[in-house]
């Protein structure tokens, strides 16, 4: 029975992705993409990766969907000139060959796993018991620091390009009770995911994405007015995560002589501190990526 479940799920993933990419109706493709994201998250749960599934559900389905919807009406549909049939057939053939080769290569790849033994051997000294959090914030913390830097670079790019703000709309009197329940729920869930990330699936990225979802509800419901002052505060919070992480890296260098090697026995405190700041900072960054920055006159910059 569970095999039938897997087959149906895999079929559903490919089918919804094809539906999302195959139509020129904007709402249909974005709704299809959001459902694809949900089904992919479900299949990641089946593949034994609940941490990734949480992030995919929160970011891949939720926030990317909102981003695409924001842009959907601003981008003009391209002229519907279809490429000639012969081109499409050739491309389709190449795509089928690519898929086949990829599936064959992945399936027949030698399965000698190198990392699980190493990770479980050192897990006790990492300060946390969830192996994914241990890899992200202890063994490979340097990668995570650079990732936050990448997010910040994207934020600066969005600031330079300065897309228009999404306009808040009046949505009626049911919005207030909705926001009153959903926004505190988001904050509570973010805290819960952050705290439990040390031992079971969860962590800073998932928590940050959920928090950003709550802020999105506030913005879309028209409860938060995007003044330049608020946006620059958001920018400060976004920068704070990168700054705290960098300072933590430098102080571990000073304390232990190695970059991001936490002092003995205090690893959990360090990881939780960094994660808490990262959660706020990731939420701020994702929100700013969604709502864009104000365009300033040139002589003001």
């Amino acid at each position: 029975m569970s095999l039938a479940f897997d087959i149906l799920l895999a079929f559903g993933v490919v089918f919804t992705a094809a539906a999302a990419l195959g139509t020129h109706d904007r709402v249909a493709s974005i709704a299809g993409f959001v459902v694809t994201g949900l089904l992919v998250a479900l299949s990641l749960v089946r593949l034994g990766a609940p941490d990734v599934a949480l992030a995919e559900a929160a970011i891949g389905a939720g926030l990317t969907g909102a981003l695409l919807l924001r842009s959907a009406w601003r981008l003009k549909p391209a002229e519907s000139r279809v490429s000639p049939a012969i081109d499409r057939i050739i491309v389709a053939l190449i795509a089928v060959c690519l898929s086949g080769a990829l599936a064959w290569a992945v399936y027949t790849a030698p399965g000698a796993a190198l990392y699980p033994a190493l990770v479980s051997e050192r897990l006790a000294e990492s300060g946390v018991t969830n192996p994914v959090t241990a890899v992200l914030l202890n063994f490979r913390a340097w990668d995570t620091l650079l990732e936050i830097a990448v997010l910040f670079v994207a934020l600066i790019l969005v600031r330079i390009v300065a897309p228009a703000h999404p306009q808040p709309v009046v949505l009626g009197e049911l919005m207030l009770p909705f926001a009153r329940i959903v926004v505190p729920m988001c904050a509570f869930l973010a805290g819960h995911l952050l705290w439990q990330g040390a031992s079971v699936p969860g962590g800073a990225f998932q928590a940050g994405a959920i928090l950003a979802g709550g802020l999105l509800v506030l913005m879309l419901g028209g409860f938060a007015v995007l003044t330049p002052r608020l946006l620059s505060w958001g920018m400060m919070v976004a920068l704070l995560g990168l700054a705290v992480f960098a300072v933590a890296a430098l102080s571990t260098e000073a304390l232990t002589g190695t970059l991001l090697l936490y002092p003995d026995g205090a690893a959990k405190i360090w990881i939780l501190m960094i994660e808490a700041v990262l959660t706020l900072s990731i939420a701020a960054m994702l929100c700013l990526l969604f709502c864009g920055m104000p365009r300033r006159p040139l002589n003001d910059v």
Partner: peptide
Amino acid sequence: LTGIVVLVAVTAALLALAE
């Protein structure tokens, strides 16, 4: 996990550029 977070940043940047 890292890739998913970077992907959303890339998507936002691409959409801003496309707009």
